[in-house]
Design a protein around this nucleic acid. Structure first.
Lengths: 134, 134
DNA sequence: TTAAATTTAAACACTTCTCCTTAACATCCG
DNA sequence: CGGATGTTAAGGAGAAGTGTTTAAATTTAA
């Protein structure tokens, strides 16, 4: 039975894990291989990350579209673009240059290759100056 | 492309919706039927609910089962029960009587009818005195 | 009561997820 | 070294999710 994103198997494994059991011990209890326990646990953690991302997206719904970082753009040029656009609509960005770049990369590691934007990244900002990417 | 739980279609519909467009208008824009827009929107909202449930579950992982509020119980008696049980295990509840009742009702509106508990509610508490219901 | 907006149902092709096995590989520790 | 722990890869069967259409039903509002 699924509750939220997690299957009963996944919840089961997470519970045992929380109790400090090893994957092998859990495998014995639920009668399967340790490799399988590993896979199930991994899937569970991925599902949890996905749940977080999903709610994160909701924030972008409250936010306004600020600009698009085009594929190929140099990551270091992004802050200037963002500051300029934010000023136009009278919102103060919550991040300084360095933390903005970090936030950009942390928020979506796959979208950047080195310091280049791989594919278009939509930038949203809310009234608090918080940034979200879509 | 999926980001979190939501497909790009679902995000698209939610955004247009947030802007106040009707399903028909969106259907025209994204070139499909309004019935389909409805289905997509519904699926999106279900995914969001699922994401919430998933993270809820994580809290119960960190928390200990404190007590069960039996169906039929008077909501106003819940705080006493909870305080007593929490004291037994040496944890200080984070909420005063009033905010506890509010939290109980807000956390799961469907579980209460007036001031009566409709069906059993499991109560969990973590070491910070935070309460969760399952 | 109309018309517009929304919801539901059934069916279909496609894709993705889940759990499972087996087997190999990487660490770490005594 | 050898054993315990954890991870990864490949493959398979079955379940579930997604976007669609068409058609009917229901709700909301003018």
């Amino acid at each position: 039975m699924k509750r939220g994103l997690l299957t009963s198997r996944q919840r089961e494994v997470l519970r045992y894990r929380k109790q400090g059991l090893t994957q092998q011990q859990i495998a014995d209890i639920i009668k399967t291989s340790k490799a399988n326990v590993c896979t199930i646990e991994k899937a569970a953690l991925e599902n949890i990350a996905r749940a977080r991302d999903t709610l994160e997206f909701l924030y972008t719904l409250d936010a306004t579209h600020l600009c698009t970082l085009k594929g190929g753009l140099d990551l270091l040029k992004a802050p200037d673009i963002i500051y300029t656009e934010a000023e136009k609509i009278g919102v103060k960005v919550k991040y300084d240059t360095v933390s903005l770049i970090n936030r950009l990369r942390d928020a979506n590691p796959d979208r950047f290759r080195g310091r280049q934007v791989r594919e278009d990244v939509e930038v949203y900002i809310n009234e608090d100056g918080d940034l979200y990417f879509g």
